[in-house]
Design a protein around this nucleic acid. Structure first.
Lengths: 340, 340
DNA sequence: CGGCGTTGTGGTAGCGCTAACATAATGGAT
DNA sequence: ATCCATTATGTTAGCGCTACCACAACGCCG
């Protein structure tokens, strides 16, 4: 028997059924009117839209997802929410996916693959149609989560070299190498690499830098790494430490612009002449880097474009299209400014 | 008849039914094992967890939301995703809501109330249990969206003075006033206010500044406002323009630190001595502001705390608790540094 | 003018889960 | 032993929506 009425005491929210009743039609036509406009006659559609407007009808994604097996959600995992670099990536993603009707469900891993796995499990409960991940180092279980019922995935920032995976990024190693070439060409020979927040991208930058220095100078560069979170303040502290440990350094490559800006401020405050006494280079080209005194030499990276292109690639995968290239190298640009 | 099998060709994703079968129990016990652990005997729970693990079961929020009328989603609308200020707010929100099991669904309004309304409509299709909004200026329709089936809302950043609404923030007007008092106490008398991105918070800061200047000096300050998006570069440009339009200015209050930092860089590059020739103050106390040369005087704002407290307030509202205070003023701190 | 594709519309079942109601098994207290 | 209050577990219906099928109405063809 149809007895025992609705458990929620009439939440008041209009459903597709209410709209159908108001427009004197069936539920399915209302559904179609919103999703496949062309399949409903203009007259009916007008009636439905009118009814929906007066009732203040808002569709329910949960019900839609349940019924259709398409959630129109995309899960995005980034290392940090307070790092401008990833926010620009997200802006790019959103600019592509939002017009397509997808909603981003985002979480921040705090640079931990274990946390990434945990968060991804949580996000999978949204039954996302696709997933965007940062970098290529994930737990084996993380890959497994995505394979059993296969969910399209695109890896951002780095280039993946497994043939079965999709990635959009640039060569972090190459960026580090470019800085090394620049230093050596400018005649700086006592060079060093300073890094914090030792994720794989940071390490790749350092590896590229070291490789070139060793190839050309036949001696390893000075290296200072700490696991702490990057910040301007840390950049200043690490500069002090590097100069103390190795006073004859004349060029320092910092793994990102935050650190490098801290170094610049430190030098300014301590009367160290940049670049005469010490050359400095960073990575990412943050907005302030072009304006700081002296202007910071750095590797400009296409963050926003990576977001856009990753999203485009993911859309193709979600639609089941074959991709021409599973890997998209967006490159980087070394920018020599006053600091080196 | 039970005929006509599942339409999706066995998506492979394990459901609560599969887990129940594998653990030789009923669906509801599986459901309870995950939600109300105490209501299931340890033995059964162990069996269920075992089964869930081997099957790789991930619960479906859509189904859960549909069945329970609690979505465990919270919609968050912020003006901009690339502005560090709001990211810190979000970090605070997430630190409170994530442990409670809520997932944030975020969107950026680009400082437009119209866009805010459009986006909120979209987010409401997630049937959020609560909503967090920035500021207090919303379209009337926006309020309506939230009332028909009443959804708890907390307004962040500014303090709302409607008795029926909840807000966590501080007095933007007071922050601007504090800067004016500081300038006047230090003897700067030819002061100005420079602003971009003219949202209500920006305007309130300017209003507070102007009010105090007029009260104490009986003359209006110089004011330069443009609608453009704030940036370091714009700060530099506006400084040039202000100094050209009004060469005898000796103190400038910028509506945020991005602009103020640009001003500082401009002065450095043009040999303008700060603070002797020109004093500068900003708003927000971004990380770089303490390190820039000269260190920037600014109004420190409790962004992270606003996020946390707003989230706590929202949790209370979502649980149906009565709130002691519908309004929480977290205050601000003026920090006098080298630039003034 | 019967046949056939097209277009517009509707009925029904079921997506995966949980609220609300059973019912069964336990452990005292009487 | 009998009763009752727990506690543990199960059955059933239905959340709001869409896939799938069915069918009516309309041309348009030969």
């Amino acid at each position: 028997m149809a007895g025992r009425k609705a458990r929620s005491p009439v939440k008041g929210r209009a459903t597709i059924k209410d709209v159908a009743a108001a427009a004197n039609t069936s539920m399915i036509s209302v559904s179609r009117a919103f999703r496949e406009t062309s399949k409903v006659s203009p007259a009916l559609r007008a009636r439905i839209e009118q009814a929906a407007a007066t009732l203040g009808y808002v569709p329910d994604r949960a019900a839609s997802a349940l019924a259709s097996s398409r959630s129109m959600n995309v899960a995005v995992l980034i290392p940090s929410i307070t790092n401008m670099v990833f926010m620009e990536v997200i802006a790019g993603i959103n600019d592509i996916l939002s017009p397509e009707g997808y909603q981003l469900i985002t979480a921040a891993t705090d640079y931990s693959p274990v946390e990434e796995h945990r968060l991804l499990r949580g996000l999978l409960s949204f039954r996302p149609d696709g997933v965007l991940l940062c970098g290529t180092d994930h737990l084996p279980q993380t890959f497994q989560l995505l394979t059993e019922p296969a969910v399209p995935v695109v890896h951002m920032m780095e280039l993946h070299h497994r043939p079965d995976s999709y990635s959009v990024g640039f060569s972090q190693e190459g960026g580090g190498a470019a800085v090394a070439h620049h230093f050596l060409e400018r005649g700086y020979e006592r060079v060093g690499f300073v890094a914090s927040q030792l994720d794989p991208r940071t390490m790749a930058r350092g590896a590229g830098f070291q490789r070139v220095v060793e190839e050309r100078m036949h001696v390893a560069p000075y290296v200072l790494t700490v696991p702490d979170r990057s910040s301007i303040e840390l950049g200043a502290r690490l500069t002090a430490r590097a100069l103390q440990e190795c006073p004859d350094l004349n060029a320092l490559f910092f793994c990102n612009d935050d650190l490098a800006q801290g170094a610049l401020f430190y030098c300014q405050r301590h009367g160290i002449n940049v670049p005469q006494q010490l050359a400095i280079a960073g990575f990412n080209d943050l907005p302030a880097s072009a304006w700081i005194m002296p202007a910071l030499s750095t590797v400009a990276t296409p963050r926003y474009e990576i977001g856009r292109e990753s999203a485009k690639m993911l859309v193709d995968l979600m639609l089941g299209n074959e991709l021409a290239f599973p890997r998209l190298d967006l490159g980087f640009t070394f920018i020599a400014r006053e600091s080196s």
